[in-house]
Design a protein around this nucleic acid. Structure first.
Lengths: 337, 337
DNA sequence: CTGAAAGCGCTTACAG
DNA sequence: CTGAAAGCGCTTACAG
């Protein structure tokens, strides 16, 4: 079936079989009554002649596209993180199984124009956001437009399908373990505070201190570190101020911290300990191995995919906020010995 | 314009203006004669009322989708490489500017079923392959079906739009530089030999030796290294066999080599030198800095996007094979001091 | 310069 | 159980 000899259509099938298009359509979709005999006849023919319904035409008739939009964050540094790549693959797997495809979109925190265009062009049936912000224009827009969507990450906006790990608890636990060992001069290096996940991580960090009747040294908390140099400087500062340990909010920051420390001739864990609130292949080759929190980005992608598809296909009742508490893992390694 | 109050259609516009749908359609597309006055009237109305044509309907009428499919390689290890991520972003930028969106697809070297489904569902107007194989089922399928497509990487299949750096020359040059310095016991560690790019790299490596009237030690060539452990073992072997330098075919392999050497207590470059045929953010934090070949994956993505769009929009004459020789960079760093 | 009408390939009330 | 017909929202010969 090459492009020249035009693809066979539902009319061709109907004609060949001496039935109506209606019948063929029903045999395919399974909707409406149909004698088992004719249904089988149609299916056999279709099978034999490799007929494939034109999804676009079906979409027009049903106001569906069988596409879902996945929105990646626009910040250059972020896009590089294996996290998003893995999450997309997770969504892809679930969507593919249900006959949906993935339309890619990149949005900045303050520029949702790409998403708007896709929605207004009606190219997709639903959307999955890979990252949430405290004030989130994407969510506001999608809610306003009443587009079905799900987010990876948490949000306080009402009625949104969301899936996330419990970052706050995870960070609290990891921090708690260090405090138990009497290590309390801990520096915290993080990215943008406008990301919900970074806020949760920070909150978990602080909670662990509260529970131990301690308080983190504000001088050791460095947020909004958006690029490599800023991270290196913060790491240097932390060392200078006598930090015993550096907590990194994600894998990218951790990579930069490790590089910065090596430049300074500081050894991990002898001179200073290091841990990361998110592990990834970016840290995989590190020696020493890095103490870190392990989350499965692929699982998040799958969960978000299932949530959205349920909303798309299932009963409209599924209006509830959902948040499967996925199980994270704390991996204690050489870097905090 | 929320989803409840149905989106305004071309008929609504026509009715409101007291003209025909034909006229509205022409005012938008710019095709066909139309008085400047009415055209302006239509455009003003559209602007004011935020009318957006339904791209799906237009697609059905024109047999177009305004989507292009980007095919990522399915191998787990590969998907992680920043290269593909960057390339996709490049395509996204070009496609977006032309009003096209990106449909994502993952294909294994021997499993093109995902691509087939997308094509047979007529979800896209064209395809971009991010990786080529010596025997390439994707290319065979797309050629057979007469689907417009472009590839990133080289191929010997006839009549395919392709864009690539000159890996062979680049690798030859880098290898040559080491040989000039009298360093000739060089190990080569590479991934699958079924990838065109890996063959080119190997060929460049060998050519440099030939030009110097030397020959590489076959014992120091390790191909088809598909996972971390295999790479580590190969690195160990290379050391044991007295290699002065290890060339890594890509960033992932290089990362594993560096980790493996550190485990063995070998220092770079004191004990052994290391260089990589592809640089990426994965190596960015490495200390010492790594001698490497630098290619811009984003540029490749953009070039491939332009090629395909030209083919899609432009004259059908554009049947020529094209291959802009993009300029690579050789970055000599500490790891080969 | 402008429009009526057919068509893109499906789906789905409505009849029978 | 099956079909004729209208409709999804556009585009495009063909007339005028």
């Amino acid at each position: 079936m090459s492009r020249e000899e035009k693809p066979i259509t539902i009319s061709d099938v109907a004609e060949a079989l001496g039935v109506s298009k209606t019948t063929v359509s029903r045999a395919i979709s399974g909707k409406g009554r149909l004698s088992a005999a004719t249904r089988q006849r149609v299916r056999d023919y279709i099978e034999e002649h490799h007929y494939m319904p034109n999804v676009v035409a079906r979409g027009l008739a049903q106001s569906k596209t069988f596409n879902i939009c996945v929105v990646m964050p626009g910040t250059y540094a972020l896009v590089d993180l294996p996290f998003f790549q893995k999450a997309v693959m997770g969504v892809l797997e679930i969507a593919g199984n249900a006959g949906y495809d993935i339309l890619l979109c990149v949005c900045g925190e303050n520029d949702v124009s790409a998403l708007k265009r896709i929605i207004q062009n009606r190219k997709v049936d639903g959307v999955i956001l890979l990252r949430t912000y405290v004030k989130d224009e994407q969510i506001e827009f999608l809610s306003e437009e009443k587009i079905p969507f799900a987010v990876i990450g948490s949000t306080d906006y009402p009625d949104v399908l969301q899936v996330d790990y419990d970052h706050e608890t995870a960070c609290r636990e990891l921090t708690g373990r260090m405090l138990e060992r009497g290590i309390s001069r801990i520096a915290l290096l993080g990215g943008s505070g406008t990301h919900v996940v970074n806020q949760k991580r920070r909150r978990g960090f602080e909670k662990a201190f509260e529970e131990a009747n301690l308080a983190p040294d504000p001088e050791l908390v460095f947020m909004d570190l958006e690029e490599k140099d800023a991270v290196s400087r913060a790491a240097k500062e932390a060392v200078r101020k006598g930090a015993q340990c550096i907590f990194c909010m994600d894998d990218a920051i951790c990579g930069h911290v490790l590089a910065g420390l090596r430049t300074q001739g500081k050894y991990v864990p002898e001179d200073i300990r290091v841990a990361s609130f998110y592990n990834s292949s970016a840290l995989e080759n590190s020696i020493p191995s890095i103490t870190s929190l392990c989350f499965d980005a692929g699982e998040l992608g799958k969960a978000a995919g299932r949530l959205l598809l349920g909303r798309l296909e299932g009963e409209e009742v599924l209006e509830t906020l959902e948040c499967p508490q996925l199980a994270y893992e704390i991996r204690m390694s050489e870097s905090t010995r």
